[in-house]
Nucleic acid binder design. Structure first.
Length: 593
RNA sequence: UGGGGAGUCGCCAAGUUGGUUAAGGCACUGGGUUUUGAUCCCAGCAUCCGAAGGUUCGAGUCCUUCCUCCUCAGCCA
């Protein structure tokens, strides 16, 4: 019986408000959908769209997805789920030089891991795939560009990139018209065709929208929309030597897919006027039909002690500051997964932080708390001694092996108990013994008593030390009538309760103790180089003494090592019968040394 | 200094067309339960909404001015 917790409120945010208003206004009630993306003619052949809204998650396959993307994924897929809509997973692959199949695969994997897929059951019972590639729209984009040219809304410029930069003006000064701005439609069309046909060198010609070089919005100063670039594309191969720019491609992708709410981050806000301009021009030309998609922007995620920019993540990987894209210290979803973070934790996290347009920095501990919260419920308990010292029970029979019973989950008795063997020689945590106890310390001390969790109460009699004075062995006597679970076991009250593992039975395992990758809350802030903020102690590999059954852990099995934290059997380095564990996150510790 | 955004408790974030005592979460503090110093439970936690004026019977919500921060000058997305 699970306790009835108050369900987490989905909260409300400005985007949900917009969606609800649009739905109430029946803004998209007449929108049609022919079962696949396409222009106005294609969609007109379809029926009323069974999806009340369409959103999309449009990653560029030029890197691995990270926690910030999780926010966007939950937003977009969540909106679709909550408002009887559909969310498209669309690869925004318009720049062949940076994109690759490896990234496509990793993104597909991450999205599924978060619990989403791109299959939708249609009203007719069929299954529709909502996995799309922008590169599949290149034909239409080419046609759209021709349309712009034909209607005098675009021209081919012969200026070099440098010249274009010089004539673009500045934030406070207007730009200057290109000398090629008034080429005739026929000339523009011919040059554009020649660009496609490979008759011009990369960068020699470029197609530009013809809007206003004096606009106070720099994005409207005749933005570049099609460039010549001979590069192999992961999807279209060498079919094209011209590629559309994001600015031009993205609105079209949304429109062809009948997206209703195109949600992106704040830095695209300035782009919205062009987004609307382009779509209106194509609608005027009959290529697209109203209602057209609308773009909305929200603040991207910032996390303290974390770096989420693609460029920086690529640097960390390529400069080998981490072991790869799935290094458990990285905020990539692949890394987080290896670290032991769970998808439900990310869901909780995104619900908890909300959506708004205010720039904000979320405290990293919020994410950790979310993981603790779901792991506390999901993970079975086990015992691990991370920094072992010997404890010898002098009055315990030499070869005796006694069964102790430990619950697998204190909040879920139905999960039963397991047997852990107790013997004369045990491993205990070095920090659970203090020769000179500080105030408030209530574990083992000279002459002190403590309970061996799930076993007996034990009283310290003496200690052995090495040459430098470190305690190496603690000697104790046990109190026979105090075994956990037996009548009268609690007759002697002790406050301390420490974990242990039989030295004879323990599984000595490799464990990686991870800490934050950066030592500064705002890596690279001020005039610092973010690489100088790297935490030199972000990982520590130790050999720990584990409860014997942990030897059978399978990759990605998660446990709470009692009194320590949550750990996961590494999916990559674990060998059958010899798992290696990663510390996901520690338990909270109110005692804080 | 041009354009576009944002400023509500330490961190996030709700605040319907202005209407009464400014949601909620996290953190924090105090108390309780507990064979994890964990979990869980209870209680407390903004007379104030970037600042200053103004309109109004009444303003976080309207007006004016000011301040701070973010963002835009790739043939990247």
């Amino acid at each position: 019986m699970s306790s009835e917790k108050t369900p987490i409120s989905l909260g409300s945010n400005f985007i949900r408000a917009i969606v609800e208003h649009d739905l109430a206004d029946k803004k998209y009630a007449t929108k049609k959908w022919a079962g696949s993306p396409g222009d106005s003619k294609h969609q007109a052949l379809g029926q009323l769209d069974p999806a009340k809204i369409r959103t999309r998650f449009p990653p560029e396959p030029n890197g691995y997805l990270h926690i910030g993307h999780a926010k966007s994924i939950f937003l977009n897929f969540g909106l679709a789920r909550d408002y009887a809509g559909v969310c498209h997973l669309r690869f925004d692959d318009t720049n062949p030089e940076k994109e690759s199949q490896e990234y496509v695969d990793s993104i597909l994997d991450a999205v599924q891991w978060l619990g989403f897929n791109w299959q939708t059951i249609e009203s007719n019972g069929g299954v529709e795939s909502n996995l799309y590639f922008a590169s599949n729209y290149f034909d239409f984009m080419y046609r759209a560009a021709e349309s712009l040219i034909e209607n005098g809304h675009a021209y081919v410029d012969s200026q070099t990139a440098d010249e274009m930069r010089e004539t673009r003006g500045t934030l406070t000064e207007p730009g200057k018209n290109s000398p090629w701005r008034n080429r005739t439609v026929a000339e523009n069309l011919q040059l554009f065709h020649e660009m496609r046909d490979g008759k011009h060198a990369d960068g020699s010609l470029i197609l530009r929208a013809k809007i206003d070089m004096a606009s106070s919005n720099i994005n409207l100063r005749d933005p570049a929309i099609y460039r010549v670039r001979r590069a192999h594309h992961h999807n279209t191969g060498n079919t094209w030597c011209i590629y559309p720019m994001y600015t031009f491609a993205h609105p079209i992708e949304d429109a062809l897919e009948q997206i209703t709410h195109s949600i992106c981050t704040l830095e695209f806000e300035d782009q919205r006027p062009f987004y609307d301009w382009l779509l209106e021009r194509l609608a005027e030309a009959g290529l697209l039909a109203h209602p057209l998609p609308k773009q909305y922007e929200f603040a991207r995620l910032n996390l303290t002690y974390v770096v989420l920019s693609k460029r920086k993540l690529i640097d960390l990987v390529e400069q080998k500051h981490v072991s790869g894209w799935d290094d458990p210290r990285l905020p990539t979803l692949a890394g987080a997964r290896r670290r032991g973070y769970v998808a439900e934790g990310f869901k909780l996290f995104t619900d908890r932080i909300g959506i708004s347009k205010a720039d904000s920095w979320i405290e990293y501990t919020i994410l950790e708390d979310c993981m603790r919260e779901v792991l506390n419920d999901a993970a079975e308990r086990r015992i691990a001694v991370l920094d072992p010292i010997k404890l010898v029970i002098d009055n315990y029979e030499l070869d005796k092996v006694e069964d102790c019973f430990a619950p697998n989950h204190p909040l879920k008795p139905e999960l039963g108990k397991r047997v852990v063997p107790l013997t004369r020689e045990l491993w205990i945590e070095a920090e659970d013994f203090m020769e000179m106890p500080s105030k408030g310390f209530f574990r083992l001390t000279p002459d002190g008593m403590v309970r061996l969790r799930y076993g007996y109460v034990v009283k310290c009699t003496r200690v052995e030390k090495d040459t430098v004075g470190n305690v190496t062995v603690v000697h104790c006597d046990y109190l026979p009538d105090t075994k956990s679970g037996t009548p009268g076991a609690d007759a002697i009250k002790v406050k301390g309760n420490i974990h242990w593992v039989s030295a004879q039975h323990a599984y000595a395992a490799e464990i990686r103790l991870y800490d934050r990758l950066f030592k500064e809350a705002y890596p690279g802030s001020g005039d610092r180089d973010y690489l100088n903020d790297l935490n030199p102690y972000s990982v520590k590999t130790i050999t720990a003494q584990l409860e014997p059954n942990l030897k059978d852990a399978k990759p990605e099995d998660r446990f709470q090592f009692e009194r320590h934290g949550y750990f996961v059997a590494d999916k990559k380095d674990s060998i059958d019968g010899k798992p290696v564990f990663n510390r996901t996150v520690t338990l909270r510790d109110a005692w804080q040394k």
